[in-house]
C-alpha cells in the first residue's frame, strides 16, 4: 500500500465569473522513503496540490489516502493529531516562522502540541533536534530573524521532523537559498531520508535540483499531469511539450564549457 495515494484531485477557482481548474484530476502515489517531485511552470498547480494534500485548502473533488486513512474525512482533533505524520517545509524560511519566534519556541510547539515530550524533557529534545539538522544547540535562544537563511531552513526541517513524520512536503524548499547553502540542505534532506525513511513530496520549478534529488517526477501543465516517470529518464528525454520546453529553458554551463 502506498504511503500517500492521491486520486483525481481537483480544485477550481472562480475568477471574474469564469471557473478555472487550478488542479484538474491529478492522481499520483508516494511510497515510503521515496522522493516524488512535482515540477512545472508557474500556474501549473504544483503548489496548490501541496496545499490540498496538507489540507490547508479543501479540494472540490478527489481523494487523498495517507497511511491507509481517508485523509479528507478527518477533522478536528483526529486531523490535528494525524498532522504529526505529514509535515511541510516552506520556500521562504523567514516568512514560515512567527516573526516573534525564537528557535526554541519554533521547535517547542510541535513537541508540546503532540505531547511528544514533557516540559522538563523538551529543552533536551530541542537540542537533539538541532543536532540532527547540523546546528549547534546554543542556537536555541536566538530569534529566528537573527540567524542566517541556511540556518533558518535547517530549523524549519528540524521542526518538520520533530513529530517523526513519514512524509514531508517540500514546497520550493531550496529555491530561495544561495547555491552553496542549497547543496548542504539537499545533502541534509537525503541524509534524513536514508536514516529515517522519510518520503518527500518535492515541489520545484528547477529541473536541475529535481534531477539531483528525486526518484520519480510528475510534470504538470495547467493543472494536469503532462508526463511522469523516473526523474532522470523524464528529464533526459522528455516526451511532453512542457517537458521539452522546461528542459530547453534550463540554463546550463556546458553550453560554454567545452
Amino acid at each position: 500500500m502506498s504511503l500517500l495515494a492521491v486520486r483525481d484531485l481537483t480544485k477550481r477557482y472562480r475568477r471574474g465569473g469564469k471557473t478555472i481548474a487550478a488542479v484538474d484530476g491529478v492522481s499520483f502515489a508516494i511510497e515510503p522513503g521515496e522522493t516524488l517531485a512535482l515540477a512545472g511552470p508557474s500556474g501549473s498547480g504544483k503548489s496548490t496540490i501541496a496545499r490540498l494534500v496538507l489540507r490547508l485548502i479543501e479540494p472540490d473533488a478527489g481523494s487523498v489516502q495517507f497511511e491507509g486513512d481517508d485523509f479528507l474525512a478527518l477533522s478536528g482533533t483526529a486531523l490535528r493529531s494525524k498532522r504529526a505524520r505529514l509535515q511541510m517545509v516552506f520556500q521562504d524560511p523567514l516568512s514560515a516562522f512567527n516573526p516573534r519566534a525564537t528557535v526554541a519556541r519554533a521547535l517547542d510547539d510541535p513537541l508540546r502540541i503532540h505531547a511528544i515530550a514533557s516540559s522538563a524533557e523538551r529543552p533536551a529534545r530541542i537540542a537533539a533536534l538541532l543536532e540532527r539538522v547540523g546546528l549547534a544547540a546554543d542556537l536555541a535562544p536566538r530569534a529566528i530573524h537573527e540567524i542566517s537563511g541556511g540556518q533558518r531552513q535547517r530549523v524549519a526541517i528540524a521542526r518538520a521532523i520533530a513529530t517523526n513524520p513519514s512524509l514531508i512536503v517540500l514546497d520550493e524548499a531550496v529555491s530561495a537559498l544561495d547555491v552553496s547553502v542549497r547543496g548542504q540542505i539537499l545533502e541534509l534532506l537525503l541524509d534524513l531520508q536514508a536514516r529515517e525513511r522519510i518520503a518527500y513530496l518535492f515541489i520545484s520549478h528547477d529541473l536541475g535540483v529535481v534531477r539531483a534529488i528525486a526518484h520519480r517526477l510528475v510534470l504538470l501543465d495547467t493543472g494536469r499531469i503532462a508526463e511522469s516517470g523516473d526523474a532522470r529518464a523524464v528529464i533526459d528525454a522528455p516526451q511532453s511539450a512542457i517537458g521539452k520546453a522546461l528542459v530547453a529553458a534550463a540554463p546550463r554551463l556546458n553550453r560554454i564549457r567545452p
Binding site: 490547508l56 505529514l86 521562504d92 514560515a96
Partner: peptide, 11 residues
Amino acid sequence: DYVAGARVIGM
C-alpha cells in the same frame, strides 16, 4: 506562511 505552518504542526 507561518499561520499555515502552525496548522501543519496541528496547532
